[in-house]
Design a protein around this nucleic acid. Structure first.
Lengths: 194, 194
DNA sequence: ATAAATGTGGAGGGCGCCTCCGCTTATCAA
DNA sequence: TTGATAAGCGGAGGCGCCCTCCACATTTAT
């Protein structure tokens, strides 16, 4: 046996396949940004210059495509929680991260798939990305609760739902500003020191 | 001229037309409740036993249909603001109304058209319903601000956006509970007495 | 060079949206 | 009651999108 010990045959993935995958993701990112998340998948394939079948092979569902596009950014957002936690006092870190979260959501202007993926909870496909976000917000909230600075009688995820949901209704820069105010109000409302 | 002075001919609206209009609204309400807001309009027409053309005559867009269905309930919700304002202290009235607002939204489980109509702002069709809601929340917030009990540095509508948006992501009873907590936190955060 | 695995592309069936227009039915005047 | 006529009905049909499927092309490994 000249193969790897556990797999009968391992073959280098075809070069054209990987090329098409990346091409589709780039094209989709542009088109989604232009036309919103409901853009036609056939149009994306057309613009990318590949057949519709190819798109579906790489991304069996619309969600899979969207998820793939934003996986990196999502991971970054989650990572930011850690670094904020290390460099800021608990409540301030939480506040800053929530602002970043809103910015992240707003730039995807109303892509309900993205939101569902992060905080909706039903989609299996997104489990990993969602876990990252959930872990991030829990880390920050737990820290702030541990110092006794804030109290929280609800799932932190629901705060994200409110912030993200607002964006899905009134997306764009206006919500960005509104959400900042909202975050301040929420933080104030959660503070334990009356 | 035996007719009205300004109109050449006024004729009683046909009885079957009005019948079909009501039938469609009832059917649509049921179907939307069952299958969500993206249910097929053709299916609604089929179940109602009318042609698709008839549906489109009465309700030129999906929004028009949804809007017609919930116009009454929306008006009631708006009216509740007035009666709460008369029977409760300002902040409590606001809190109670927000709870009612969430209940209202949740029962339409994630009908983004409804939400857009109320707080999204772009749709012309809903201007009247939206104005009612905007008037209601402004009334309550203004009252509470006037007594100095709360401060608010943002458009009250944005609070509704957050509450309604959350429902669009995580609809159902779970959000109902979460929103109640959120409302309490918001009220606490808006209180001026530190 | 050749075999085998891997990936491609687009035709095709299904469905929903919406328009258009020939036909039906209710209303009104005589 | 009986036309005349406006008002309304309904569904065929064009379009676009979704997604599957498979004959064919390309790549990799031998």
């Amino acid at each position: 046996m000249a193969e790897k010990s556990d797999e009968p045959t391992v073959r280098k993935p075809r070069a054209d396949a990987e090329r098409n995958r990346l091409l589709l993701m780039e094209t989709a990112k542009t088109v989604f940004a232009d036309k919103g998340s409901s853009a036609s998948l056939e149009e994306i394939a057309r613009i990318a210059g590949v057949g519709i079948g190819t798109l579906y092979r790489h991304f069996p569902t619309r969600d899979a495509l969207v998820s793939a596009i934003y996986r990196n950014e999502t991971a970054q957002l989650a990572a930011a929680a850690k670094s904020l936690a290390e460099t800021h006092p608990p409540v301030e870190a939480l506040r800053l991260w929530l602002v970043q979260f809103v910015d992240y959501v707003v730039t995807k202007h109303g892509m309900s798939e993205v939101l569902d993926s992060l905080v909706g909870g039903t989609s299996e496909l997104y489990a990993d990305s969602a876990d990252l976000i959930i872990g991030a917000v829990n880390l920050l909230v737990d820290r702030a609760v541990a110092t006794g600075e804030i109290r929280l009688a609800m799932d932190p995820l629901d705060i994200l739902r409110a912030l993200a949901g607002g964006a899905s209704i009134s997306c764009g820069p206006a919500w960005r500003e509104a959400a900042r105010q909202l975050i301040d109000i929420l933080i104030a409302g959660m503070r334990a020191n009356r």
